[in-house]
Each structure stands twice: as C-alpha cells, then as structure tokens.
Write a protein that binds this DNA or RNA. Sequence first.
DNA 1: AAGTGGTCTAGACCACTAG
DNA 2: TAGTGGTCTAGACCACTTG
Lengths: 238, 238
Amino acid sequence: MTGATARRAPPRGDWRAVHDEALRRIGAREWPPGALIPAETELAEEFGCARATVGRALRELAASGLVERRRRAGTRVAEQPSRHARLTVPLIREEIETTGATYSYALIGAAERKAPPAVAARLEGAERLLHVAATHFADARPFVFEERWINLDVVPEAARSGLFAEISANEWLVRNAPFAGGEMALSAAPAEAAEAAALGLAKGAPLFIVERLTRSPDAVITLARLAYAPGRRMRLEL
Amino acid sequence: MTGATARRAPPRGDWRAVHDEALRRIGAREWPPGALIPAETELAEEFGCARATVGRALRELAASGLVERRRRAGTRVAEQPSRHARLTVPLIREEIETTGATYSYALIGAAERKAPPAVAARLEGAERLLHVAATHFADARPFVFEERWINLDVVPEAARSGLFAEISANEWLVRNAPFAGGEMALSAAPAEAAEAAALGLAKGAPLFIVERLTRSPDAVITLARLAYAPGRRMRLEL
DNA sequence: AAGTGGTCTAGACCACTAG
DNA sequence: TAGTGGTCTAGACCACTTG
C-alpha cells in the first residue's frame, strides 16, 4: 500500500481502501453472512499494509454492525447486516426553523410538586421535582406539547422563578446541565384532554409521542414527554 | 500512563482513560461548550502517553458528537452535545419473540403491479414492481400490518410464486438482497380502512408508522410501510 | 508559514478464548 | 496453549486551514 511515502488521488487514507474492499466482498457475497474472514495479519499481507491499518478498517466495519469480532475466534460477517440507524435529535427550535417557519414558545406552567408514582419510579428517588408544561409553535400553529419533570437535586438552579417563561426547559438544560446519556422511547397515542387542548385538536387524535429520560453521571436529570401534532415525521438514515 | 509494560485493574485500554477524563472535563465545564481544548501533543504529555492514544480517545469523542475537530483549527467542545441516538432495527419476528409471544405471519397478497405515482417517484424509475401486503401476529393478535413494494429489476427472484406465503418479505430480503443503506421515517397516523381491517381496529385508531426505504449500491430495493397496532414502543439509547 | 489533526508503520505486549 | 483481536509506542509524513 502507499504507506506514508506516496499517496494517490483520494486523500482519504489507506484504511478506507481496505474498509471499502471488505464492504464490497461482503456485498458481493464473496464473504457471505456468517463467514470467517481472514485474520488481520493475512489481510495486511494481502493489501501490503500494516496490521494496524487493517485493524482500523475492520473496527469501523464492526462499529457499523457489519462484522463481529472476537479475540481468538476471529472476525465474522454479521448474519443480519445494517440493523442500526442513527437518529439526530434536534432541538425543537431548530426542527421548526429548518422548515422555514417561525419558532415560538409558550409556558403553560412551572411548579415544584410531587410526582405521580409512575414518574417517581423512573426518577430513581429524586426528592425535589419541578414540573413544567409548555407548548412550542411553528408560525403560531401548535407543533408540540411538552410535559417535563426536572430533578432539582441535580440542577437546583432550574427552580429560579420565571426561568422557563422565555427559554424552553430543553434549551436551558442542554446548556446548563452536565453531559449525560439517556433513553428515548417513541410511540403513537391518542390525544389526552390536556394534549388535545394545548394542540387545538380533537381528543383522541393520533399523536407522535417521544419520551426522553436524560441522565447525569450520577442521577436522572429530567424526564420529558413530547406530544407532536399530526404530520410530524422523524427521519433516520440506515 | 501504563503503556504496554504495566496495566491496572480495568483492562480496557489507556485511550479510554483519556476519553473518560475528557468526558469528565466537558461535563464539569472545565472545558465549556465551544472551548478549544489542548492539542493532542499537549494532552499526550499531560497523560504521559503517545499522541496516537490521545488521538484515539478524541476520535471517539468526535464520533459521539461531543467535540468537533478540524486540522489546524484544533478540537472544540461541541455547543450542542449528545444529539445522536442509536436505534437498533429488529426483525419483526425477533421483536415479537423477545416479548415471549409466539410469532406468526399471514400473507394477504403478493402481485406484480404498477405503483401509484407517489411510490414510483421514490423508487427511482424501477420498472417491474412486486406489491406485497401482509400481517404479522403476536400470539394470534395482530401486531403490525405491512405494505411493501419490491424492485424486481434488482431482485427478480422475489417474483417466484408462493415465495412470501411462508417467509416474510423482510426476512427474505435481509438474507437475499445485497447489502444496502437506506432511510427510515417514523410518524403517527390514523388507521386507514385497510390497516384498520388487518389489525382489527376501528378506523382512525392511532398507529405508529415506520416507512423504510432500502438501497443496494445501485438502486432502491424496497419501500415498506409498517403500521403498528397501539401500544408499540420503539426504544433508543442516547 | 506554521501548527493542527489524520494517517501510516514496525514492533511489541497483552487479553481473551477456542480447541 | 496457541492464535486471534486490542492496544500501545515512537517516529514519520501528509493534508488542511488559519492567521
């Protein structure tokens, strides 16, 4: 391979050439699903490059789920390729503004209160909770109704009066809460009374529901339920 | 750092230590959003490891969207961290069987036919199309209604009579069509007449809709619309 | 022009696990 | 226990882009 001394047209790196050729062999069934592919050392010899370069290529393939690697056992083509999709979670503001509409936001209420048991269970023993309800608009048309619980044990600053009158809880949290992982669940549900009222829909209208739980390293930061008006589509790439 | 000579308890690699410490500094706002972080060489000196090790750590952070890297410009903490979620797209069979229910499948119809214009546009000039309609059941209860178009120019074998009587189109395609990327869109919609009938629901019931388009390297392979009965949740990790 | 990240190499040791 | 992937190093050259 070219190594560090000479380089050809696409300045993308040699590991990518190995990666792409492996991809081709998998697609062409030269390496069929479930098959064991040659070891790194063999491929390095075939491609005339260092083992680390082959390793980089195969690591990327493993990350995209196309091959499975285990020490001693070797690298196998996955039986079920490409079963992962990457979803970009936009801020609601950006989601609306990229459609060309004007974003606005209206707080319905924010108050410290006790969570119902189902919520409390998911918040893992948080004691002080802030409940926030709000609607986001696209060109003055209701776009999504948001109901959220915030763990004040983790972000006590969120209790400041009037904080969420102008900035949405999500935007404030993104900027002020420590980085975190979390979980998300998507579903469809009929509009409940509060949701129907906030979105200007008939009760029972089909809503796209996003429930999102966000964690700091130590505890749950917030649990949010977003109810989107009909017509909303969430796009992903496979 | 430990290097290759001595190693401590968690046998996970030194790049992960750098990665985790960087994560901590970002979370603790020692490296605030938008800030330029030290160059690889500086971090390598601080951590007492090789520059490649720091590079590996920062590359992983960049892949998860937490930092942005550009040559000469350096590495910056992203303004909007963690905006990606990874979705595992299961086979319907697995999705049902992991709940403990028994999977079954009933073909409603499979026939070569002309696509309506909206479908034809997305299939990018495919000429021969197979239309398939089917229902998937969990313990004899309708779980999802599937309507699918298959590009016979790409997978002519799919036209074989009786093929989809026993195996679902998705499972057959996963095993027999060349590897591909694709797109997916999620939404909520009221049940149309055919969907309501197949799922045993009232017309207008809120359905969770998954539209999936799958590509081979050259052309669109298939376009599918999956309508899930109420109660279905799709889970993701952030 | 200079400094950053991106990549490659050759060699090494280690962790894991199938046979 | 032998062979695989996982990681690390030290050094090097290159591509890119900012100042």
